[in-house]
C-alpha cells in the first residue's frame, strides 16, 4: 500500500464527516440565493397586484380560523397549567402575567409559525411543484412572465406582512383564552386580570413577537416556494417537495425562534 493510499484511508472519516457538511452549506447557499432573488424581484417591476392580493388572502385571512382556534385553546390550557403548577408554591396569582408573557414571547409566534408551516408551506410547495410537473412554469416563461416574480415574490412578501399580523391576533386570542379560563373557572377578578396583563407586558415583548412572526412567515413561504420550484418529476416529486418543505420550515422556525429569543432576551 502506497503512502498516499494510507493517508487517504486515514483521512476517510474526516471525508465522511465533511461531505454532509459541505452538502448542508451548499443547500444554505442555494436557499439564500433563492431568497435574495425573490426579494430583488419583489422590488422591481413588473408587479402583479392580483397575485399579491391572492397570496395575502390565502396566507393571512384564510389562516385566521386555524390560528385563532390554536391560540384560544393554548391560552386556556396555559392558564390551567400555570394555576395548578403555581399552586404548589402559592403562586396561583401569576396566571395573568405568565399567560401574557408565554403567549406573546413564545407560544404565539411559534404556534402560529408552525400552523403556517403546516397550512401554507405545504400548500405553496404542492401547488408550485404541480405547476412544474405539468410544465406550467415553463409556460409562464414562454409567455414572457418570470416565475420568480409572478409566483415566488408575492407569496414570500405576503407571508412577511401577513404572519406578524396573524401572530398579533394569535397573541390577543391566546391571552383572551387564558382570561376566559381564569375568570370563568379559576375565580380571577376580570378587571384585575386585565390590569395585571397590561402592566406586565413590555414593548420589547410585543416587538419580539412581531419580529418572530415576520421571520417565521418568510421562512415558511420561502421553503414552500424553494421546494416547489426544485421538485422532482411526477406525483412522487410533488409529494417529496411537499414533505421536505414542511420539515424544513418547521425546523428552521424552531431554530430561528431560539436565535431570536437569544437576540431579544439574552442577559
Amino acid at each position: 500500500m502506497s503512502e498516499r493510499d494510507s493517508l487517504t484511508r486515514a483521512l476517510s472519516p474526516l471525508g465522511a464527516l465533511g461531505r454532509p457538511v459541505l452538502g448542508a452549506l451548499a443547500a444554505v447557499g442555494r436557499v439564500t440565493l433563492f431568497a435574495l432573488n425573490a426579494l430583488w424581484r419583489a422590488l422591481r417591476p413588473p408587479f402583479y397586484p392580483r397575485e399579491y392580493a391572492l397570496a395575502m388572502l390565502h396566507v393571512g385571512w384564510l389562516s385566521l380560523p386555524v390560528v385563532g382556534l390554536t391560540a384560544l385553546f393554548t391560552g386556556g390550557a396555559l392558564a390551567l397549567q400555570i394555576y395548578s403548577g403555581g399552586a404548589r408554591f402559592n403562586a396561583e396569582s401569576v396566571v395573568p402575567q405568565i399567560v401574557a408573557i408565554g403567549m406573546v414571547r413564545e407560544l404565539g409566534p411559534v404556534l402560529v409559525g408552525l400552523m403556517i408551516a403546516a397550512r401554507v408551506t405545504s400548500s405553496i410547495a404542492a401547488e408550485i411543484a404541480t405547476m412544474k410537473v405539468t410544465e406550467q412554469i415553463d409556460a409562464l416563461t414562454t409567455l414572457s412572465t418570470d416565475p420568480m416574480r409572478y409566483l415566488v415574490a408575492p407569496r414570500v412578501v405576503s407571508a412577511l406582512v401577513a404572519v406578524p399580523l396573524l401572530v398579533a391576533v394569535g397573541d390577543v386570542i391566546g391571552i383572551a383564552g387564558g382570561y376566559a379560563v381564569a375568570t370563568g373557572n379559576l375565580d380571577f377578578n376580570p378587571a384585575t386580570y386585565l390590569n395585571n396583563t397590561a402592566d406586565f407586558l413590555q414593548w420589547r415583548d410585543v416587538v419580539s413577537s412581531l419580529a418572530k412572526g415576520c421571520a417565521f412567515g418568510g421562512l415558511a413561504a420561502l421553503m414552500g416556494c424553494y421546494f416547489g420550484m426544485n421538485s422532482g418529476r411526477g406525483a412522487q416529486g410533488v409529494g417529496r417537495a411537499t414533505k421536505g418543505s414542511v420539515e424544513a420550515a418547521a425546523v428552521l422556525i424552531l431554530a430561528a425562534n431560539f436565535l431570536l429569543t437569544g437576540a431579544f432576551f439574552s442577559v
Partner: peptide
C-alpha cells in the same frame, strides 16, 4: 429575452393551462 420570447407561441404537450 423579453423581445425574443414575445416572438414565440408554444403549445405544450399537456396544454400546461393555468388551473
Amino acid at each position: 429575452r423579453d423581445a425574443f420570447l414575445a416572438r414565440f407561441g408554444m403549445l405544450f404537450q399537456g396544454a400546461a393551462l393555468f388551473d
